[in-house]
């Protein structure tokens, strides 16, 4: 058990270190979601005048967007890091040590969590400066960062699965638009009951990302909404469990010998 913890810690340290040493990655992970948030929140502020719009501020409504986007960033970064390790042979080097495969996965996901935490906290600070009003107060902010991290973990495990299956950085990065689409085809920009096109509302209803978004959003605009939070955490956990299982299987396949 001690050896296992040592391995996970060493791999986690490496994962955090390599991200910390690429300021460009950190800056773009912080900047791009904030930029989209600023543009979206402002450009769509007229939406709050639609009859039946929840709350009176689109900025509050839109705040879930950068958090979910942050999780996506983490997934792509982690996935392409892992794919790069496979391409370069670094993965082979690790495979030759007595390392348990699952340590590699956990170490890598620790890096995702660290980046997710940083993004969650920074976005929260910027959001508060922008006038975001979190109705559930400080405890809600903690829960909000927690749900963001859980979302990042789930997406990160999907990124890892992709990397392990394909072993190609290009393949992982070309999945980026797919994630992006998945985020947009949800209730990210308008509440589901205000989506007019039936086909779009259907997609948004079956898209689990809608529930992640609505869980995060409920903390901001309504306060403590047990149903929304239950669905949000439930979906996030389900994604984490399924994606981790898939990543574990892919890892065993890749390391099979």
């Amino acid at each position: 058990m001690g050896a296992f913890i040592t391995q996970v810690a060493a791999l986690a340290a490496r994962s955090v270190l390599r991200t910390a040493r690429q300021p460009a990655v950190i800056v773009s992970a912080l900047l791009f979601p904030m930029m989209f948030f600023a543009i979206n929140a402002n450009g769509l502020s007229a939406a709050s005048r639609i009859p039946g719009f929840p709350g009176d501020s689109y900025v509050d409504f839109a705040f879930a967007f950068p958090l979910v986007q942050a999780a996506l960033f983490g997934a792509i970064t982690a996935g392409s890091d892992l794919a790069r390790d496979i391409e370069s042979g670094f993965f082979d080097r690790l495979s030759l040590t007595p390392m348990r495969p699952v340590s590699l996965l956990l170490g890598m996901l620790f890096g995702v969590i660290a980046l997710g935490l940083l993004q969650g906290v920074v976005f929260l600070c910027v959001g508060l400066l922008f006038g975001v009003d979190v109705h559930s107060g400080f405890p809600g902010m903690v829960v909000l960062v927690g749900l963001t991290i859980l979302t990042a973990l789930g997406f990160g495990a999907i990124g890892a699965t992709l990397a392990l299956r394909t072993g190609s950085v290009e393949a992982v990065e070309s999945a980026f638009p797919l994630f992006f689409v998945a985020i947009f085809m949800s209730s990210i920009n308008l509440p589901r009951n205000l989506i007019e096109a039936d086909w779009f509302r259907f997609i948004a209803t079956v898209n689990p990302i809608s529930y992640l978004v609505e869980g995060i959003r409920s903390l901001v605009i309504t306060g403590w909404d047990v149903q929304a939070l239950g669905l949000g955490f439930g979906c996030a956990l389900a994604i984490v469990v399924l994606a981790l299982a898939a990543a574990g299987t892919s890892l065993r396949t890749r390391m099979a010998r």
């Binding site: 040592t6 391995q7 060493a10 340290a13 490496r14 080097r93 040590t97 007595p98």
Partner: peptide, 9 residues
């Protein structure tokens, strides 16, 4: 070297 040594226990 640190990483490698840690993984080798």
């Amino acid at each position: 070297l640190k990483l490698q040594a840690a993984l080798h226990g």
